[in-house]
Design a protein around this nucleic acid. Structure first.
Lengths: 187, 187
DNA sequence: ACCTGTTTTTGACTATTGTCAAAAGATGTC
DNA sequence: GACATCTTTTGACAATAGTCAAAAACAGGT
């Protein structure tokens, strides 16, 4: 819980009142490796804060799993599309390690936003930070050779390379595992 | 201005007070085809509402222009990264047609957000809509052949194909103009 | 209808990457 | 230490897409 509050404080000042309220809204969740946090087709009713562990978001395309995102410590995770619209999720989120998470329901969040105007600003600023990271991920994703894509990732997000297994990274970069393996052997 | 207010009302209810305030904050801007709204390297101090016309966002990669986004009527446009962080923009936004835009400065927006708490919610919800469109654009962007990418775009955003010239669409889909031309001839 | 400049199409060739299949290397457990 | 399982590497071949260059189609203006 300390980590979560600290992350929120980094975004914007928090009154003691709202801090107490937050403590009540979030529930600790511990899940083992391999488990699914979000499953394709189900509506996603919670937003999670990831205290410990890592996970991946992926969707299916012609029977192939496409990893489009990795989550690590201090990230807020959910299928944002499904959480916002309350339509069934098109993606899955799977734990790549055992994880400690803090969950808040859509309803609790809505109540929080209606009660505390400062919470509204908190969420907006969190979105901005999230959006900027998303943008950085996609700039440089196009028109590159496998080698360039890998070198770019190595600079931009070495923690992904250190921690995630080859097949998932290949899927994330949009190439086959074999190609990625060959790229690596050439460096 | 009517269109802008209507768009905002679609997002969330507006009090008459805030409507008047909005009228004062936005400035009408008319620019000819080819002009740049945002230029790489310059800090972007305005957010625009596009009433009429269309435009493209692109960045340079090894001397090649990569179009990553198109804007049409009723879109809010800017280099969000630069506008939010006030760092120099990494992308350009160029008008593909003559356009009518409504501009609001970063300062005016900040004042608005501090004065009217409901504006805070307005921006958050606008972000959510924007984010969802962005996500839809990138899902299905990977692991596909040129033909599939084009067919996907045809379904998802036929207005882009009808209105934008071949070279820009090719750049947007991450393929050469020649390949796109061949794909089209096969259908 | 004609000229001019721009956009789109076509052709030939090359390079990169995907696919399938098998081998080699790690990791964990008994 | 040996076995089973999972991950990574290597090899051979086919298919897809990029590049360069030239031709054709289209649009706007006179």
């Amino acid at each position: 819980m300390e980590r979560l509050l600290q992350q929120l404080k980094d975004i914007h000042h928090l009154s003691t009142e709202i801090q107490q309220q937050l403590q009540e809204c979030f529930t600790k969740t511990v899940l083992p490796k391999g488990e699914f946090l979000i499953t394709e087709g189900k509506v996603c009713r919670h937003l999670y804060f990831l205290e410990q562990g890592c996970l991946r978001g992926f969707y299916n395309l012609d029977g192939k799993e496409i990893t489009h995102w990795f989550g690590f410590e201090n990230d807020f995770v959910t299928s944002f599309h499904s959480f916002i619209t309350q339509e069934p999720a098109v993606e899955n989120i799977q734990l790549l390690e055992g994880c400690i998470l803090w969950a808040i329901s859509k309803e609790s969040l809505a109540t929080l936003l209606n009660t505390y105007h400062e919470a509204e600003r908190l969420v907006r600023i969190a979105y901005e930070k999230y959006y900027i990271r998303l943008e950085e991920r996609y700039v440089n994703a196009q028109f590159r050779t496998a080698t360039e894509l890998y070198e770019n990732l190595l600079q931009r997000a070495p923690h992904i390379i250190e921690r995630i297994s080859l097949g998932y990274i290949a899927s994330y970069l949009g190439m086959s595992q074999e190609t990625l393996s060959r790229v690596r052997s050439r460096l």
